[in-house]
């Protein structure tokens, strides 16, 4: 009994020491994190709350706002331009994501080795990513002009088209031309991400597969792609999110035309805000987009999660 009392007396101060240290460390940690928390709150949470509040109001660009919930959300269901833009944006996202995955992986495999001169190709493929998206779109807009740009002449010279090449005049051509421009702009960027994933795969695994006599295709299918899954997932999330929010390429190249056939969801939102000056409706569309994007990304991460616990 006596010994236990002594033990308890000894344990008391000793146990308060670590607890106090833990509290102090927690306080220090919070203080260290505070600048980041402040930035997140000021730059993300506050604007988000403001946008949510804006979506509940009739908010003209110039003039006083007035609470009108849920009119802005109801109006979305009657906004034909936005509704038709949903299917178009999904179609665009699906197509460019597949293209990005295939081309970026192919390019990464191409420049994976360390042969002399390979750096030139890596740089060349990555270079378009250094050009601003709007600048890229403007560059291609000039290239696609039959009176001014060289592309039409080149295609005619190669015998691929007769007369004027159709780059932006029809819905299909406008879509193809924009996808081509976006692929040029982003393929190198995603290639670099794929390349880092490829280089993280241990060489020993490839050596083992060679010892087992695996073909190139078997190695790709059974080793490279499974081990590249986290990288592919990253590319998928980045591409899907970016494509669902596509704006500049279409806004500059097609302005949503011809005949509103290439209007994306963000163009429809931008129009509400800065052409029709209805910030409330635009904010409502933004909130719907935000919820949809979060849902899509959660679904992607869930479906592609690692199902084999280590």
């Amino acid at each position: 009994m006596a010994s236990s009392t002594v033990a308890a007396a000894r344990v008391g101060p000793a146990s308060r020491g670590p607890a106090r240290r833990a509290r102090r460390e927690a306080t220090s940690g919070l203080l260290f994190a505070l600048p980041a928390i402040l930035f997140v709150v000021i730059l993300f949470v506050v604007p988000l709350v403001l946008a949510a509040w804006m979506s509940l109001n009739d908010w003209p660009l110039i003039g006083s706002p007035a609470f009108n919930a849920p009119d802005n959300y109801v109006a979305i269901s009657e906004n034909q331009l936005f509704l038709s833009s949903i299917w178009f944006t999904i179609k665009y996202t699906a197509i460019v994501t597949v293209i990005f995955l295939v081309i970026s992986l192919a390019l990464a495999l191409l420049v994976q080795s360390t042969r002399p001169g390979i750096g030139f190709f890596r740089t060349a493929f990555l270079l378009p990513a250094a050009v601003g998206l709007a600048s890229s779109a403007l560059l291609f807009y000039a290239l696609y002009n039959n009176e001014y740009g060289p592309l039409g002449d080149m295609l005619r010279g190669l015998g691929l088209v007769e007369g004027n090449a159709d780059f932006l005049s029809s819905s299909e051509a406008a879509f193809r031309s924009t996808v081509a421009m976006v692929t040029w702009r982003f393929a190198g960027f995603y290639m670099i991400i794929m390349l880092t994933g490829l280089q993280a795969i241990p060489v020993e695994v490839y050596e083992a597969s060679r010892m087992d006599g695996a073909s190139w295709w078997q190695t790709l299918r059974s080793i490279t792609l499974p081990l590249l899954k986290p990288t592919i997932l990253l590319v998928l999330v980045l591409s899907v999110t970016g494509s669902l929010l596509a704006f500049e390429p279409f806004y500059i190249l097609t302005q949503g035309g011809p005949s509103n056939s290439t209007v994306t969801m963000v163009i429809a939102m931008f129009r509400e805000a800065f052409t029709l000056f209805d910030l409330g409706s635009a904010a409502a569309i933004a909130m719907v987009l935000l919820v949809a994007l979060v849902g899509i990304n959660v679904a992607q991460l869930y479906l592609l999660r690692d199902k084999d616990p280590k």
């Binding site: 009176e147 001014y148 004027n164 005049s169």
Partner: peptide, 22 residues
């Protein structure tokens, strides 16, 4: 009038005229 008129949003209008072919 040129077929390119249909696609011209204004960004390259002056450049086309500057070619001297208009």
């Amino acid at each position: 009038s040129s077929e390119s008129v249909r696609d011209e949003s204004g960004a390259t209008r002056n450049d086309v005229f500057a070619t001297g072919n208009v």
